[in-house]
């Protein structure tokens, strides 16, 4: 074992579950997630020299996220279409305020469907926050957008989720 290998074991291995969870949610399937995590770890191994210390989890998640989008662009280009003007989209209809009681009754399948249907920028922000438990600042760093954009994407993602789960027929 060289020091670089020990370094890899210390920096990358503890955050493998986080990387896998992110890839799993971004692609929606475990075989693809495995490919992406493997690719991300290879990139991490190659780029270990450039890792300057600090937040190892955010560093690995940033690499995983980039690997996932490269993978999606290559294998499922349609999933990434029409995301350009996403911030300008009208929010979910405010008039139809979802009922709290209906949201409370949602099951795992319904939530997964609703998250899977989110546009990629919203989905990754939500997953990084609510699955990976990262702070706004970390998410901004990983996704490379300003803090304000993280906050508005997160709000939009949750709006869409509430609307999807609060619809009576969703249950």
């Amino acid at each position: 074992m060289t020091s670089s290998n020990e370094h890899f074991a210390a920096v990358v291995m503890p955050h493998l579950d986080d990387a896998y969870a992110l890839a799993r949610w971004l692609t929606g399937n475990s075989a693809d997630a495995e490919d992406i995590v493997q690719e991300a770890c290879l990139r991490a191994l190659r780029g270990l020299d450039r890792y300057a210390g600090g937040n190892a989890r955010a560093w690995l998640l940033a690499i995983t996220r980039n690997a996932a989008f490269t993978w999606l662009a290559r294998n499922r280009p349609k999933a990434l279409l029409a995301t350009e003007d996403i911030e300008a989209l009208a929010p979910a209809d405010g008039a139809a305020t979802p009922e709290e009681a209906l949201i409370a009754k949602a099951d795992a399948a319904a939530i997964e469907r609703a998250i899977a249907a989110l546009p990629p920028p919203f989905k990754e922000t939500l997953v990084l926050r609510d699955i990976n438990d990262l702070s706004y600042r970390e998410i901004a760093e990983i996704t490379g957008v300003p803090l304000g954009t993280v906050m508005s994407r997160l709000a939009r993602a949750r709006d869409l989720l509430k609307a999807a789960l609060g619809r009576p027929e969703a249950k």
Partner: peptide, 11 residues
Amino acid sequence: ELVKPVAPPAL
């Protein structure tokens, strides 16, 4: 409802 996915041992 959501279980955080865990990296499979083989991976």
